[in-house]
Design a protein around this nucleic acid. Structure first.
Lengths: 150, 150
DNA sequence: GACAAAGCAGACAAAATAGTCTTAATACTT
DNA sequence: AAGTATTAAGACTATTTTGTCTGCTTTGTC
């Protein structure tokens, strides 16, 4: 698995918020969790992480919940990934050698650097708005497909 | 971390074997473990996995050890990765949605498919021979850089 | 002010991954 | 045949990640 579950859940929740388009309103974590089929408490902690990184804001009490801290056009999937999995998720040497860098590369350094670049570009260029737009335009789904009852 | 530690160790060990170029001789796991600074018992299990996938062969007793099962030109890093982390390491949906596919894609499907392709290409085109060649030609290192004693 | 609806915080439990140890089985050497 | 060097196998432990629970705090409503 490329991304951790925390990270995947964070991406899905953020996209959910982007799709919600509630001007000024907050959405309860409970609702997000149940719609996305993620454990409520677990998602709470993940969203708290996003909050600490100033990607979402939250509000307590009735009609409280969470919302994106910035317009969805200004949050990239990379922002989410870095917030959860750390700044250097993709920076690390593919062969796990601590000192790997341009001066003392590991044998895979060059090849990996190129494909890492490709990955980073994708995530950097994919804002939540982009994802939301895709989702709407192509009638895509955010949750797991319903089990067919035949 | 993109690849698991098992996988990284497996890659390093396989490359070590490719570099060894002992015609017909076996190299003891003990030696590989100590040179690559990997736990001996842990590496043993990893190499056993590679053996079950017919990537290495082993021999017991004095002068025993392990060796590549095929010429290093015929083993790709993807072979190692798949052997350790499963056939579908990179096949999985980036957003973790089980039913994600061309008919019912997740919102990231298209973008991710492209960069996944790039990753797969790199690993598929990188044989152990290629890595070994790089290592020799550029005087690269396989182990961690020595701590400088100044 | 009492109550209810939310997020917050931290302890706890379960599962996955990583790593260790002990005992066997095998093969060479003398 | 005995001793030694090696992998094989499986039990065990440790660490990290994932997930759960319980109680607390904040905020709105009546």
């Amino acid at each position: 698995m490329l991304l951790s579950k925390r990270c995947i859940y964070a991406l899905r929740a953020a996209l959910y918020l982007a799709l919600a388009k509630t001007d000024g309103e907050y959405i309860s974590i409970q609702k997000i969790a149940s719609e996305l089929n993620i454990s409520f408490h677990f998602l709470t902690k993940i969203l708290q992480d996003l909050q600490r990184k100033n990607l979402v804001i939250s509000f307590r009490g009735p009609r409280g919940g969470v919302a994106l801290a910035r317009p969805d056009t200004e949050i990239t999937s990379m922002d989410i990934i870095r917030a959860i999995n750390g700044e250097d998720v993709f920076a690390q040497c593919i062969m796990g050698l601590p000192g790997c860098g341009t001066e003392t590369p590991c044998p895979m350094h060059e090849d990996w650097a190129r494909s890492r670049k490709a990955i980073e570009t994708v995530f950097n260029n994919t804002s939540l708005a982009t994802l939301a737009e895709q989702t709407v335009k192509k009638h895509l789904r955010l949750t797991e497909p319903k089990a067919r009852t035949e």
